[in-house]
Simulated assay, not measured.
Amino acid sequence: MPPAEQGRAHAVTLAKAGADIVALDMAEDLTTVPYGLGTADDLKATATAVEDQDRRVLTAKADVRSSAQLDEVVAAALDQFGHIDVVCANAGIYSQANFWEMTDEMWQDMIDVNLTGVWRTAKAVAPHLIERRQGSIVLTSSVNGFQPGWQIAHYVAAKHGVIGLMRNFANELAPYGVRCNAVCPGAIDTLMLNNPHTYERFAGKPGGTREEAIESVRHFHLLHGRSMLPPTAVSEAIAFLSSDAAEHVTGIAFPVDAGHLAMDGYNPSPTK
């Protein structure tokens, strides 16, 4: 079963590398998000995919907006596995509106999940990592952690904030031997992009299709032949940053964007 979303892709990729997995999701929708979020069935499918790699898995219905729920998950993970080595703060949502037309709820949901949820996730596990004097935290930012985006001021603010958190976490945790880095995905082939609202955004017209979006995204990338990138592209970066191969790496923002941030804004002649 190929991973369809970033969370599952990360779980399976790390399981293939030998990790046991703790996977959590709020498993319900938010009214401010114009596409369906993960479900309880999705969480079960992730567990099955991890078990198919002969690794153990603990799943939990938990919301990154709640420190109490995250603390419960960490306690359950330590009870089952004894220790935690890697923290992957991946929860995220996406919505669109001009900043002067956003509702307070749209803004708050975005900041609560994409920024404050990252802080809460790291906060829940940091004392354990500090006590063990080792570990890796990888936060999910975005190319929008470096640049603006049309009608996504709340998303851009959150993702810029994640890079700021990462740099502070790296500084504060370094004396304890704990590393913190961020991955910065570009256009990834997940439900965040695979929905009618985002198709219209990329196609530049009402009623845009997935096929039109795929062609449009080619202009977003520098490397030959790239459209929406597979979720595993980000997962492999996370696996590297979490591995012994990156034992001397901390405090970096790692783009996974097929060269997007190296471009002069827009690729007028994408190659297939």
Rank of each mutant, 00 (worst) to 15 (best):
D41A: 15
S243F: 05
C184H: 02
S235T: 03
G38M: 03
A49R: 00
D257P: 06
I84F: 09
D109L: 05
T271N: 11
W100L: 14
E28F: 13
P196N: 08
L173C: 08
G149A: 15
I137C: 00
A126Q: 06
I84C: 05
V138L: 08
R179A: 00
A182K: 04
A15C: 10
E105V: 13
P2Y: 07
S66W: 10
Y266F: 15
P127A: 09
D79T: 14
E131N: 14
I163M: 15
A258M: 07
A47Q: 12
T48E: 14
Y176T: 08
R8G: 12
I93K: 01
S142C: 10
Q151V: 12
L58I: 07
V143N: 09
V33C: 03
E212G: 02
R167W: 10
A47K: 09
I238H: 02
L37R: 07
H248A: 12
A213P: 01
A174T: 14
G38Y: 05
L78P: 01
D54V: 04
F220N: 01
A126N: 03
A174P: 11
E105A: 15
I130R: 13
S136H: 09
L261W: 06
K44F: 08
Q151A: 15
M110I: 14
R179I: 04
A77Y: 02
F99P: 06
F81L: 08
E215Q: 14
A246Y: 03
I21E: 00
M166I: 04
R133T: 11
M106S: 03
A77D: 00
P206K: 12
L70C: 01
L78H: 08
D189N: 15
D29H: 10
V50F: 08
G259N: 02
A237R: 00
A187S: 13
V22Q: 00
P175M: 10
V74A: 02
A62G: 06
D104L: 11
R132F: 05
T13E: 13
N144S: 13
N195L: 10
E212K: 03
E236M: 09
A91K: 02
I152H: 08
I252Y: 00
A75R: 10
Y35N: 02
Q151C: 12
E236D: 14
G251D: 04
A11P: 05
T48S: 14
Q53L: 03
G186P: 06
T31P: 13
G149N: 15
Q53F: 07
L191Y: 12
M192L: 15
L129P: 00
S227P: 08
P2N: 12
V86H: 01
H221N: 11
L70V: 05
A75L: 08
D189M: 11
D42E: 05
R218I: 11
L229I: 10
G186R: 04
T271Y: 12
R179W: 01
T39D: 07
K44D: 14
I188N: 01
R65H: 09
E247G: 09
V249T: 10
S142L: 12
A75I: 06
E51H: 09
V87G: 05
A89N: 13
R226D: 03
I21N: 00
T116Q: 11
